[in-house]
Design a protein around this nucleic acid. Structure first.
Lengths: 337, 337
DNA sequence: CTGTTAGCGCTTTCAG
DNA sequence: CTGAAAGCGCTAACAG
């Protein structure tokens, strides 16, 4: 049933080695031979068996993507971007989803899941334990993080500190002095730095402006709308003075906050300003002021670096800071007098 | 560097054939031998090479998932569910993203992308052309659709007609007689039936209640928030009488509509009721009344059937209707008098 | 520029 | 229950 390389070779009156070279675009094949091989391969509908070439060459032309879960705006876009450039270059994308660290028990990611299956691994915005990192490094395939820094490997992401600073300074410039914070934290991943970076930036910006950081205005959520809503409720329910503005560590939480504010009749931005980070696909429609990033580009950039590295250009993997941009929309305004 | 099956065989004083059998749990291996093999494999950190076993057996233990794009709530959850059960059974998930048909030019999905790489293919909510279907069937690997029916292959999805009917009848039961419709359509995919099924159900339910279908209240969008918002704006801007309720073919569009209504000061549900389909993760927080479905379960179910089929139980792939449920929340109420 | 020849690491008859 | 041996389909030296 399957037409193999020998069929093509026979049909084209050349050796299998020549067919292999011709089809892979290697040098040392005359143009006429190459054309002939290409034509007969085409006419026979020949496609090389990935298993066979993988076994023979030791390369699988597949990159693995390790992701905590898929139902998150950022992840979907990064993967989409990676898949686009990977596939355009004849590479496959093998997905490893951990099924969520939110459930507390992160499925064990073992070196064996990866072994001999992929030529490179991308770790999506996710902290790995020291032990896991050690294992991964031991496989000695290129390793790259996307979405945040991971110690011991290069990464593609925005400067989270600077982005958070931009958000908070926008609020301060507007005249806000009572600023709250929805912190996007993830319990199980102590290692993962993005939340911490944003938090530090928030605190620094506040301190620089001589503003007070009130614990009652700072709540932690897990990046999701539902958690944003819950965290917002806790702030709104707190006795005493309310903040006039809230910075949310993710747009999804900011949206949850907005929903909760609406439910309570709190008017945004008249009574309360909100700024997020991400530019989630819902944000423009919701009119949410945010610091936007472009995960699709993160994915493309990461894939490009990986391809270069695998293509034989060493040291193609480098720390890469992607751009971000403050997008002022309708949820921020000067504080009420 | 790599420890291979011969190392294990040597170490355990058995043949490679026995190692292979023992490790794969095949019968005809004594328990003592199996234990010994398992132990030495473990101690050597042996993992079989997928390329080699794929080449030798003709099976890759990988299932492909063809998806139009990833940044959609439904897709992410389905994939997550599939990946969970697939991986628990030693299967891998290879992702093929078409990069979106919304851009008009769907990247050509050729049989060659699939060939010899996967043991089965899942097509996610996506219409394929007759030609593409023919090609896929020719590869003779099991084919399964998820999210909607695809002619010529079994599928896992909800009864879209019944779900839409439930939504509309809820509106009618509330007393609404002027009902609008945000149609979730996809231009490039004439073949894909889900939008049509929902539309027919909408029209039928209206007719059954003796209600008028006004073109000015029916707008088409592409499933996204942004489009929902645009479509809603078109309805709101239309001269003449406004609907008192709107049924949206997807929660994402319903949310867009809600954002637009808010922007214009239209009060929901006092002035306008809204009901969607999906139970998107944002819907509960937004208080959106909707007909919920559980894509994670769709994915698990699909993967289970595939595994059974690949495991040697023929005819495991069958048309499977998944449950849905009307979830009444805060966006529906009787029409204003 | 092209052909020969070994494998790559496993699975799978077929014997025993 | 276990072993020997023949490939699976391709790539990668090495010749020529």
């Amino acid at each position: 049933m399957g037409v193999s390389i020998v069929d093509v070779a026979a049909q084209a009156n050349v050796s299998t080695a020549t067919v292999s070279r011709a089809l892979r675009g290697l040098p040392r094949v005359s143009e006429s031979t190459r054309a002939k091989v290409l034509a007969t391969a085409q006419s026979l509908g020949y496609v090389a068996s990935p298993s066979a070439s993988g076994l023979a060459s030791g390369r699988t032309r597949t990159v693995g993507v390790l992701v905590p879960f898929l139902d998150r705006w950022y992840f979907g876009h990064v993967i989409e971007g990676m898949d686009q450039v990977l596939r355009d270059n004849g590479y496959n994308l093998l997905l490893f989803s951990l099924g969520g660290y939110r459930h507390g028990k992160m499925r064990r990611f073992t070196e064996s899941m990866v072994r001999k299956q992929i030529d490179a691994l991308v770790v999506l915005t996710l902290g790995l334990s020291a032990e896991e990192l050690r294992q991964l490094h031991r496989t000695d395939i290129p390793l790259l993080s996307v979405g945040g820094p991971v110690e011991g490997c290069s990464g593609v992401y925005i400067d989270d500190g600077a982005a958070a600073t931009a958000a908070v300074e926008h609020l301060i410039a507007l005249g806000h002095r009572r600023i709250g914070y929805l912190r996007a934290g993830i319990q199980d991943e102590k290692n993962f730095e993005v939340p911490a970076l944003r938090t530090i930036a928030f605190e620094t910006a506040l301190a620089k402006a001589g503003l007070e950081l009130r614990p009652a205005w700072c709540m932690v959520g897990d990046f999701t709308v539902a958690e944003g809503q819950r965290a917002a409720a806790r702030i709104f329910d707190a006795p005493g003075e309310q903040p006039t503005a809230i910075f949310s560590g993710s747009d999804e939480m900011a949206l949850g906050l907005i929903f909760e504010a609406q439910r309570r009749g709190i008017r945004i931005p008249a009574q309360l300003s909100v700024v997020g980070i991400d530019d989630h696909e819902f944000s423009a429609s919701a009119g949410l002021t945010t610091v936007g990033q472009k995960p699709l580009e993160h994915g493309k950039t990461a894939a490009g670096m990986l391809l270069a590295e695998l293509g034989g250009t060493p040291h193609s993997l480098r720390e890469t800071l992607m751009p971000f941009e403050l997008m002022v929309r309708d949820t921020t305004a000067p504080p009420p007098r």
